[in-house]
Write a protein that binds this DNA or RNA. Structure first.
Length: 208
DNA sequence: CTAGTGATCCGCT
DNA sequence: GCGGATCACTAGA
């Protein structure tokens, strides 16, 4: 693994649309207690989306999605796994981005221990896998992503580079249909880094 | 590589 | 009561 360049706190505007944030989270490093990696796959959800937990309005489970942007929405999936979202837009909008895969970069030994698995490619290749590797569970629901134990970092940019610019180089962001949903199945709101070997699944649309 | 399946439980109608 | 924003494992091509 090549070591990361200098990392600084991520300058990302979570009050923007989930689709906008989802693409700009690619390349951001997500850590919990210093353990984690680079985000390489995301999915966007918002309240107008039939596939979203927030479609029918606030409920106890998805209340955090209607809270302040830049916080976590953590929910249990299939009774077994945890999944983590970054809340987007101003409070009350019910929008967020599901973090689907990380390229492991920090605390490999810790993640291997929590996953009970050696294979680096599969450590964080999926929303349930990465929460297990980072130790994310219901206690993190509603917590700020800009405060411990969370940390969001990105490579240092030149002062001339706008924070709204994509972190990944031109042509490196793939888009495709989201995974595991039964409504709005064709909307291309899954985003990933082209060529990454740490995706939860390949993108059908294009050659990696 | 893909397809099928069981695990496991809670949020919501 | 239904059905998941999933995963790991198996069987077979």
């Amino acid at each position: 693994m090549p070591d990361s360049p200098l990392l600084v706190p991520a300058a990302l505007d979570f009050s923007a649309d989930a689709h906008w944030v989802a693409q700009r989270l690619l390349g951001v490093t997500l850590l919990v207690d210093g353990v984690g990696g680079r985000i390489v796959e995301t999915e966007a959800y918002d309240q107008s989306d039939p596939a979203s937990h927030t479609y029918a309005g606030p409920t106890p489970r998805c209340a955090a999605m209607f809270g302040p942007p830049g916080h976590a929405y953590v929910y249990r999936s299939y009774g077994l796994h945890w999944c983590v979202n970054t809340v987007c837009r101003e409070a009350g909008h019910g929008a967020g981005v599901l973090v689907r895969a990380l390229e492991p970069t920090h605390g490999l030994a810790q993640m291997r221990a929590l996953r009970g698995l050696d294979n680096v490619r599969l450590l964080c290749a999926g929303p349930g896998r990465l929460t297990q590797a980072l130790g994310i569970d219901a206690r993190c629901n509603g917590a700020s992503l800009h405060a411990p134990p969370f940390e969001l970092l990105e490579p240092a940019r030149s002062a001339a580079t706008a924070p709204a610019q994509l972190l990944l180089p031109e042509g490196m962001v793939l888009a495709g249909p989201r995974i595991g949903i039964s409504k709005a199945v064709d909307m291309p709101w899954r985003f990933g880094e082209r060529g990454s070997r740490f995706l939860s699944r390949p993108f059908a649309s294009q050659k990696q």
